[in-house]
Write a protein that binds this DNA or RNA. Structure first.
Length: 569
RNA sequence: GCACUCUUGGCUUAAUUGGAUAGAGCUUCCGGCUACGGACCGGACGGUUAGGGGUUCGAAUCCCUUAGAGUGCGCCA
């Protein structure tokens, strides 16, 4: 049940509707003062009374007998504080979680609506490195969050699969490559070929011409060139797919740059007809001076189209195909201007849905150099950390901790995989997405404190308690859950559905990470405060059910984040 | 030069979007396993929320300003 709006029904303030009051209700920080509160300061001016007096007057009009879920109303320092009936609250919350199970947190707000999410967007024949981590896991988490909220979600991997580099790659392959080499070496082998091409091209500039020649062949639909091109694509996607599987990432569409190749003429023509596309230094641009932005370049002097041209075509295609209510682009904030520009161009074209395009920006990932200063990733300078290597390293670390702490554990490999990968995903979804992140092994290999393994440990601990508990089919006595620790825990569990909605509204999966961390932490406090097994049967049952509910919410939250829980570790 | 973003203890960060005493984790120090899992828990140290001004009952949060950092700014994506 929604406590805030139920409480709001009890409060009568002139000129305010129930909804107004409900939206002013807040959670109380300090649980000893209550659970929900209404700050009365803002009424002081219109009512011409002191806030405390107003709070007292409202308190005196509230009849608790019609609200069995409340146990106390109190006016304190201008706040009207409501304390819920703890036993009722505990029972209501825990029963709901146990009854709904994996569905706890589901909502219908998204029913009948479609959201497109453009994320990950790998480049063919380029390394899948930690620079792709954030877009991939943030996009993946949003994908699952919106599904949970009832939306129809379309996950799009906008592949970087077009450009002269593919002509060069074909040229290099035909000169120095073999099929086995590529099949075995995959992206690394393709990258090696690409690098070799550039080295050789410095000695023999004619190679550049050859690269262009083969790219032209791709464009013209030459059978051999197309076959090689799609083979490179297949090899790349096969390797990248392995990482996606480990991260629990899925896509509904892989329509990338090459897909939009023949879809740019129409929007360009429309822009021209509207007089928006103008010639400038031989190129064609949309002037955006009126919006204090530099012009958006859509066609080069040599007639070739650009990034923005393709994105405009893609947005229109997506609107036509999916009729989205929102289209998200999970892309680093470096591209802020680019998105603002092409969103504006689409608006100028007269598409009212331009307002539904959202750039979900996130911070920059950098590495530390030898002096401890952050440096940006660079394939050219060899400053690349393969995502797969990071996963392998954290899994290895998890494995070695298991060997040390729990050598007899069964299924170590799978458990280490889930812990190691979980640690990486967790660290990427820990902070608000706009924060920059310097990647360091020190950080992702630390499994203490607010980390993925910490939450997984709590889950495994809950599981161990339940395994060890004797059969108990008594009715739970929730009035026995009297400790502050239990209260706080239940309060956090109850908040979960609301937090998912907020995470969706703000495109901020870290809100889920934070809540599940608080839940794990609070369970551990509860665990040390109260002995769970033993004593009165009804009370024991209540503590066991609370343990079960905690596990369920951790499981549900981790599923949204893409992290697997483990029963033992 | 212009635009966007950011600045909270040594480090990484939170704060119900303007609400009560700014809350955690890491690090350091102290304490806790003959306990239902010590990858844990408790405690201590550590903050003028970058500086200044303003708005108001109330500001880390909004406005102005100064400083610092990052990113971007026509023929790459």
């Amino acid at each position: 049940m929604d406590y805030k709006s139920n409480i709001a029904k009890l409060i009568k303030i002139d000129g305010l509707t129930e909804n107004d009051v409900a939206s002013m209700m807040m959670n109380v920080k300090d649980i000893t003062m209550g659970d929900y509160c209404l700050p009365c300061f803002r009424f002081a001016k219109t009512l011409r009374k002191a806030p405390q007096l107003i709070a007292e007057e409202i308190a005196s009009t509230i009849d608790l007998s019609v609200a069995p879920y409340l146990s106390k109303v109190e006016a304190v320092a201008g706040y009207l504080n409501f304390t819920v009936n703890k036993a009722f609250f505990a029972q209501n919350t825990i029963d709901r979680i146990l009854k709904e199970g994996e569905a706890y947190g589901e909502d219908k707000v998204g029913e009948g609506k479609t959201i497109c999410i453009d994320y990950s967007s790998v480049n063919i024949a380029k390394p899948f490195h930690i620079g792709h981590l954030l877009t991939t896991v943030i996009g993946g988490a949003l994908y699952r969050i919106y599904k949970k909220l009832g939306y129809n979600v379309v996950g799009i991997n906008h592949l970087g699969d077009w450009g002269t580099q593919f002509g060069k790659l074909i040229s290099a392959y035909k000169r120095w490559g073999t099929r086995e080499q590529i099949e075995q070496g995959s992206i690394r082998a393709l990258l090696d070929l690409y690098v070799k091409f550039h080295d050789e091209a410095e000695k023999d500039p004619a190679l550049e011409e050859e690269g262009r020649y083969y790219f032209k062949k791709i464009e013209d639909g030459d059978t051999e060139a197309l076959e090689l091109f799609s083979w490179f694509k297949e090899v790349t996607l096969r390797e990248v797919g392995k990482v996606y599987d480990r991260l629990g990432i899925k896509f509904d569409s892989y329509a990338g740059e090459s897909f939009y190749n023949d879809k740019m003429d129409a929007p360009l023509r429309a822009l021209k007809d509207k007089g928006l596309l103008v010639e400038s230094d031989g190129a064609e641009v949309v002037q955006l001076d009126d919006y204090s932005m530099p012009p958006c370049l859509l066609r080069k002097a040599d007639g070739a189209t650009l990034y923005a041209t393709r994105d405009i075509a893609a947005a229109i295609y997506r609107k036509d195909t999916y009729d989205f209510d929102k289209c998200l682009y999970v892309v680093a904030y470096q591209q802020n201007l680019h998105f603002k520009q092409f969103f504006k161009v689409i608006e100028l074209m007269g598409h009212e849905w331009a307002k539904d395009l959202v750039h979900v920006a996130f911070g920059m990932v950098s590495l530390l150099d030898d002096d401890g200063n952050p440096v940006s990733l660079s394939t050219r300078h060899g400053r690349v950390v393969f995502l797969e290597e990071v996963l392998d390293n954290t899994v290895r670390k998890a494995r070695s901790i298991i060997e040390q702490k729990n050598p007899d554990l069964e299924g170590k490999d799978e458990i280490a995989e889930n812990i190691g990968v979980g640690a990486v995903i967790y660290s990427a979804l820990y902070a608000s997405r706009i924060k920059d992140m310097t990647f360091s092994y020190d950080r992702v290999l630390n499994f203490d404190g607010e980390t993925g393994p910490y939450v997984q440990y709590t889950y495994a601990r809950c599981n161990a308690v339940l395994q060890k508990a004797p059969l108990n089919d008594s009715l739970p006595d929730y009035s026995a859950l009297t400790s502050i620790e239990a209260d706080e825990l239940i309060r956090l569990l109850e908040r979960y559905p609301q937090v998912i909605k907020e995470a969706g509204d703000k495109y901020e999966p870290s809100m889920v990470t934070r809540l599940v961390t608080d839940i794990a932490s609070q369970y551990n406090k509860f665990y040390y405060q109260e002995r769970i097994i033993g004593g009165d049967k009804g009370a024991e049952k209540a503590r066991l059910n609370l343990t079960k509910a905690t596990m369920q919410v951790i499981y549900n939250a981790f599923e949204l984040l893409g992290i697997k829980t483990v029963d033992r570790m």
